[in-house]
Design a protein around this nucleic acid. Structure first.
Length: 217
DNA sequence: CAGTCGATCTGCT
DNA sequence: GCAGATCGACTGA
């Protein structure tokens, strides 16, 4: 079975599976409106020992899918408005996975444009994890869905992308331990125009201005 | 361009 | 309460 072997190829730690997912194509057919993305950038999360991972504090209702078997989609909701999608890797219980950070729309581009509100350039359609999820029409309902079964279809390349075509660097938006360059667990296809721009992780509220004592008695 | 900020839900302290 | 695996609008050069 093609299905079984594809899944078993993902049953390795996410850092190893990264070069399998780069160059793969993920399709979501939402009621006859299929959109396909060729994945160009991913980020590895390495389970409950990884301080940057949602799994770090153990299993919860939200991250439950991460702890399950490989080849399922972990969809989470964040910042009150965005969905992001991971492909679960590794063995059951390991909670390792790959965040889909960017891609190139290869099919259903009109649908993707509509969902994204017609951005300036098609490069922006799936550049960034929440944008990619929105272009594909991924939402909470797909959390836990099998990427090898309708309405999803993941097509892995026959061979992993050669190492020399892949760049790596610090994960985006992960600060503190495991974030600031400790692990180069963000992987992208070197030179691909759809790869999201790197921004160093920053704490949001940074008033620190002298005399900001409004709320203090 | 680069920097800043609001939107607004979830899990944990 | 608060910070977060983010984005887009807005500001100012």
């Amino acid at each position: 079975m093609e299905d079984t072997s594809a899944r078993s190829r993902l049953a390795v730690p996410a850092t190893s599976a990264a070069r399998l997912l780069l160059g793969s194509t993920l399709t979501h057919d939402d009621g006859g409106r299929p959109v396909s993305v060729r994945v160009t950038e991913v980020e590895a999360y390495m389970g409950d020992a990884d301080p940057g991972s949602h799994a770090f504090r153990g299993r919860t209702a939200r991250n439950n899918t991460m702890f399950g078997p490989a080849g399922h989609l972990y969809v989470y909701f964040t910042y009150g408005m965005h969905y992001c999608a991971n492909v679960v890797c590794g063995d059951e219980g390991q909670a390792t996975g790959l965040l889909l950070r960017a891609g190139e729309i290869t099919d259903g581009i009109e649908t993707a444009r509509e969902r994204r509100g017609n951005p300036r350039t098609d490069l922006d359609l799936a550049r960034g994890p929440a944008r990619l999820a929105q272009a594909l029409g991924i939402n909470r309902n797909l959390d836990g869905a099998d990427v090898f079964a309708a309405p999803l279809r993941l097509e892995l390349p026959d061979r992993a992308v050669p190492e020399e075509l892949v760049s790596s660097g610090p994960r985006v938006g992960v600060s503190g331990p495991g974030g600031s360059g400790e692990y180069p667990w963000r992987y992208w296809l070197t030179g691909d125009p759809t790869v999201s721009k790197y921004r160093p992780a920053q704490p949001r509220k940074q008033p620190a201005s002298a005399g900001a004592t409004a709320l203090r008695p």
